[in-house]
């Protein structure tokens, strides 16, 4: 699904309709910046990379 948005000087461009994409809640936005939570995510992300390295053809 697309909607057509443009400024008068342009040929209309088919911009993707993202109105059904979920928006983060205020709590989710806070978590993305929370240092303690993000330190945990940092450890988890690096562990995942190392797991991929160990089990794949790396």
């Amino acid at each position: 699904m697309t909607d057509m948005t443009s400024t008068p000087a342009e040929t209309p461009v088919p911009v993707a309709d993202l109105s059904r994409a979920p928006l983060p809640t205020a709590a989710t936005l806070r978590k993305r910046k929370s240092v303690p939570i993000q330190l945990t995510r940092f450890a988890v992300f690096n562990t995942r990379i190392m797991r991929m390295v160990l089990k794949g053809d790396h």
């Binding site: 993305r32 993000q38 995942r48």
Partner: peptide, 14 residues
């Protein structure tokens, strides 16, 4: 298990 997407400060540190 290993195919993930996440948003936040930690990715920036990585």
């Amino acid at each position: 298990k290993d195919t993930r997407g996440e948003l936040g400060l930690s990715g920036h540190w990585v």
